[in-house]
Simulated assay, not measured.
Amino acid sequence: MRRPPRGTRKRDVPLTEAGIYAAALRLIDADGVEALTMRKLATELDANPMSLYHHVPNKEAVLRGVTRMVGAQFRTVTLEEAPWPERIRLLATDFRTLAHRHPELLAYSFSHQPDFIQPDDPFWTALTAVVAAAGVSQPEVTEIAALMVAVVVGVLSAELNGSLQQWASLKAPGPDAGEVGPTDADPGPGEAGQEGPDQDRMFRLVMDTLITGLESRLTAGRDGQDVGRR
């Protein structure tokens, strides 16, 4: 018997929000957010396009649901006995791993969904707990955590869209900036940027800088210096 076309066959499994989000994520990972349409999603699910609207009102709602689903996959740090800098690094590294696992979705979320992190998200819950454990005063825990998220998200956005690699390949101006032609320390166009910067090392550098800054602030506070709100 000839197989009916996709989208016209009777589904053996009823549509659910979770199933819709999972199918949408497969399409986004394969082709990107812009290529996702409700019709393509219905085809992926072997469903009538109109039946999707009984579960989700529009594409934006689908994207929000997919983002929430992916965010719930974040692995909560359980190293309560480890020093707080180690826990911060692990949190950030796990978040980066998740972003690179679903780069199309996370790049979209970073730039189009300012509320993609919610108070009950595993990442935010773990981060605020670690910041508090570091010794940050309770009124400032949320502010410090928010700034850390902003920095990490900014770096990850630049990684995912290629900006970080381009910026890191720029030459820094120096005493020989006016000279024409390559030198031994200045490879020519055919050599420069073939492998690009080590983004893993750069991400570790970002985290070292964040942690060192917070450590300095906490130390200044213990020494009685004015590090409160200005």
Rank of each mutant, 00 (worst) to 15 (best):
T8N: 07
K59H: 11
G196L: 12
A23F: 05
P114T: 00
A168K: 09
A158E: 03
V13C: 05
G19S: 00
L210T: 06
V56S: 02
D115Q: 05
R64K: 01
T125M: 14
H55G: 11
N161T: 08
G196D: 05
L63F: 07
W84T: 04
D121M: 01
E44F: 11
E195R: 09
I211P: 08
G174E: 03
G181N: 07
R87C: 14
R2E: 04
A99M: 01
A220F: 10
L218F: 12
M207N: 11
D12F: 05
V152T: 04
G65H: 04
G19R: 01
D198R: 01
A61N: 00
A158K: 13
A146D: 13
A99R: 00
F110N: 04
A146M: 08
A22T: 09
S163W: 09
R96M: 02
L79K: 10
R201V: 04
M207D: 05
T183N: 11
H102S: 08
A35V: 01
V66Y: 00
L45W: 02
E140R: 15
L160N: 05
A35M: 03
A47H: 09
L127G: 02
R222I: 07
L147F: 13
A150L: 15
V206L: 15
S163P: 08
G19A: 01
A158N: 12
E179A: 12
T219W: 13
A132S: 15
G196P: 10
S51R: 07
T209M: 05
V206P: 12
V180H: 08
P139H: 06
E80Q: 15
T78N: 10
P83F: 12
L15H: 06
T212W: 07
G7F: 14
V130T: 14
Q165V: 03
A18K: 00
A146N: 14
D226I: 04
K40W: 03
